[in-house]
Computed example of a mutant assay.
Amino acid sequence: MAKQVRPEGADHADLATALADMQQATETLAALDAARQLRELVERTEWDLVRTARDEGVSWTRLGELYGLTKQGAQQRFRAKTRRTPKD
């Protein structure tokens, strides 16, 4: 049985709540704010998954292929946000 991937970022409940907020909004600005929150949660999850993939040995070349980018394009897009900081 394959293990389930659990990114460190957004919890699935957070994503579901943000999506529901966006869908149930009755005012444009409320819907826009919910969409912004949803995007931020998804981006954080994506960065965490890229970090996990790199920790598991996935190459920048393979990540680039997944996103339709070159190796360098993938590095430019994700490297700064996925670096782990040394613990003090």
Rank of each mutant, 00 (worst) to 15 (best):
A35I: 00
L19V: 01
T70H: 07
A16F: 04
R44M: 05
T26F: 05
E46M: 11
A35Y: 02
T26C: 09
Y67A: 10
A10R: 01
H12T: 10
D48W: 04
V5S: 09
A25T: 06
Q75C: 06
A16D: 14
A2N: 05
P86G: 02
T45L: 08
L15D: 06
K81N: 11
D88W: 05
P86Y: 01
K3A: 11
D48V: 01
R39A: 14
L15F: 08
A2T: 04
A10E: 02
D48F: 01
A25K: 03
D88G: 14
L38D: 01
M1S: 13
A25S: 13
R84D: 11
Q4H: 08
A53D: 05
E8P: 00
A2W: 05
A30I: 00
A18P: 05
Q76T: 08
A2P: 15
R84T: 09
A30D: 15
K81W: 04
Q23Y: 06
R6T: 13
G68H: 11
D33A: 14
E40I: 01
L38M: 09
L41M: 06
K87W: 02
Q75I: 10
R6F: 09
E56Q: 12
Y67H: 14
A18H: 03
D33C: 02
W60C: 04
L49M: 14
T85A: 15
V58R: 11
R77S: 07
Q75D: 00
M22T: 05
P7F: 06
E43C: 07
T61I: 02
P86R: 10
A34R: 02
A25L: 08
K3V: 07
L69T: 00
E56H: 11
A74W: 02
D14L: 10
R44P: 00
S59W: 04
R44Y: 02
V42C: 13
Q76I: 01
V58P: 00
E40K: 09
T28A: 14
G57F: 05
